Simulated assay, not measured.
Amino acid sequence: MTMYTVLIPPDTQLDSLSDTDLDRVTFIKEGFCWPALYIAVVWMLFRRLWLVVIVYLVLALLLEFVTRHIGGVAPFVGGILFALLVALEANGLRRWTMERRGWQLVATVEGSTLADAEQRFFSALAARRTSPAPTAPAPAPAPRTGPANAPRFASAHVVGLTPGPRQG
């Protein structure tokens, strides 16, 4: 099963999503991104990852410069490793960019396909909306007034914790 993270638009709440907000809910797959492996810059531009494109191009040029000076198979190996790294982190960079823009991560859903994950999320959301309001949680216990494991300095001697003369 594939894991998907669910993000909702900025300035919205999960319990009060309108129909237009429901259409904008975004599911981002966890893991490897094949389009980012083959056409990374096009994929980034399509996803509007402007800062990521700039950093990608700077790092690609720096990698090209360094590996050309090393010579041999270094440019080939370096290029393949860089492309694999970008493809592994592409969906994480997309999620990071959306969170920077104010989108809220509200859930993680698993499904064999995107449609299955969407069905699970929206059916759980519908069940949450139709269920009765939860009761108020029980009050938290009062905090302790003193430190829990403080050594006593009067008569108890704890090796390394009690100040005073050493006993020999």
Rank of each mutant, 00 (worst) to 15 (best):
33 C>P: 00
21 D>Y: 06
14 L>E: 15
121 F>L: 04
159 V>F: 15
168 G>F: 13
98 M>H: 09
106 V>A: 08
121 F>V: 05
68 R>L: 06
123 S>A: 11
37 L>C: 05
13 Q>R: 15
39 I>Q: 04
127 A>H: 11
63 L>C: 11
61 L>R: 00
116 D>E: 13
110 E>Q: 13
136 A>E: 09
122 F>V: 01
72 G>E: 05
89 E>H: 05
44 M>F: 09
79 G>H: 02
79 G>A: 08
105 L>M: 09
2 T>L: 09
126 A>C: 02
32 F>Y: 13
153 F>N: 11
165 P>M: 03
113 T>K: 04
115 A>D: 14
3 M>D: 13
5 T>G: 01
71 G>W: 06
108 T>C: 06
135 T>N: 08
102 G>T: 10
104 Q>G: 03
108 T>S: 12
133 A>C: 04
166 R>Y: 03
51 L>C: 00
81 L>Q: 11
149 N>Q: 12
163 P>F: 10
23 D>P: 00
117 A>D: 05
63 L>S: 09
22 L>A: 14
79 G>Y: 05
146 G>P: 00
7 L>M: 14
129 R>F: 04
58 V>T: 09
140 A>S: 08
75 P>I: 02
160 G>D: 10
132 P>T: 12
33 C>T: 07
157 H>G: 04
55 V>W: 08
38 Y>P: 00
138 A>D: 05
9 P>L: 12
129 R>G: 02
151 P>I: 11
62 L>T: 12
47 R>V: 00
150 A>T: 08
5 T>H: 13
8 I>D: 12
118 E>Q: 15
2 T>H: 13
100 R>A: 08
108 T>I: 13
118 E>V: 02
95 R>F: 02
18 S>L: 10
143 P>L: 06
134 P>M: 10
67 T>P: 02
25 V>L: 09
96 W>M: 08
79 G>D: 07
161 L>Q: 15
53 V>Q: 01
147 P>L: 09
21 D>E: 15
1 M>L: 10
87 A>E: 03
128 R>M: 10
41 V>H: 02
104 Q>A: 14
146 G>K: 11
27 F>P: 01
150 A>I: 03
107 A>L: 06
109 V>W: 00
165 P>C: 03
75 P>Q: 05
8 I>H: 14
73 V>M: 15
72 G>A: 12
71 G>I: 05
111 G>E: 02
56 Y>W: 13
147 P>T: 03
26 T>M: 10
56 Y>M: 04
138 A>W: 00
122 F>N: 01
166 R>D: 10
66 V>A: 07
9 P>C: 09
1 M>V: 13
121 F>P: 00
156 A>S: 07
25 V>G: 01
149 N>E: 07
9 P>F: 08
32 F>Q: 04
63 L>N: 06
74 A>H: 06
19 D>Y: 08
137 P>T: 01
135 T>H: 11
40 A>V: 00
14 L>S: 07
75 P>V: 00
154 A>K: 08
156 A>V: 14
139 P>D: 01
154 A>F: 13
30 E>C: 03
60 A>M: 06
17 L>P: 12
155 S>F: 13
50 W>Q: 01
54 I>S: 10
28 I>N: 07
122 F>I: 05
42 V>H: 04
1 M>Y: 13
55 V>F: 09
74 A>R: 04
88 L>Q: 05
100 R>L: 14
111 G>D: 07
134 P>I: 11
